[in-house]
Simulated assay, not measured.
Amino acid sequence: MPQMAPLWWEMLFIMFFMSYMIINIMIFFNKNNTFKTSNKINKMSPQPNWLW
């Protein structure tokens, strides 16, 4: 039925857009968590005292 083609294209576009947004949100929170853990690691490591 060619009358149903626009509905399928719309559903395909919506599913692609939703998956794209979810992947971007997951990447954002993953980067945010890695920055927090890297800051904690840097704060826990002893800082050298350079005497110039």
Results as ranks from 00 to 15, higher is better:
P6Q: 00
I14S: 12
M11Y: 09
M44V: 01
K43D: 10
L51W: 10
P2D: 11
M1Y: 14
T34R: 05
N49V: 11
I14E: 14
M26L: 05
S45V: 06
Y20D: 11
W8E: 13
W9L: 08
I22F: 13
A5V: 12
W8I: 11
M15W: 11
M15K: 08
L12I: 04
K43G: 02
F16M: 07
I23N: 15
F28G: 03
M26A: 14
N49Q: 15
M15T: 10
N42S: 06
L7Y: 10
P48I: 02
M44L: 11
K31F: 05
F16N: 03
N49G: 06
K43H: 09
W9Q: 12
M11N: 04
S19G: 10
F35M: 04
A5M: 09
E10H: 08
N32R: 15
M4K: 09
P2V: 00
S38L: 05
M44A: 15
F35E: 11
N24A: 15
M44S: 11
A5F: 06
Y20P: 03
M21T: 05
W8V: 03
I14C: 11
K36R: 12
L7V: 02
W50Q: 13
Q47V: 05
K40H: 07
K43A: 04
P46Y: 01
Q47N: 02
N30Y: 06
M11E: 07
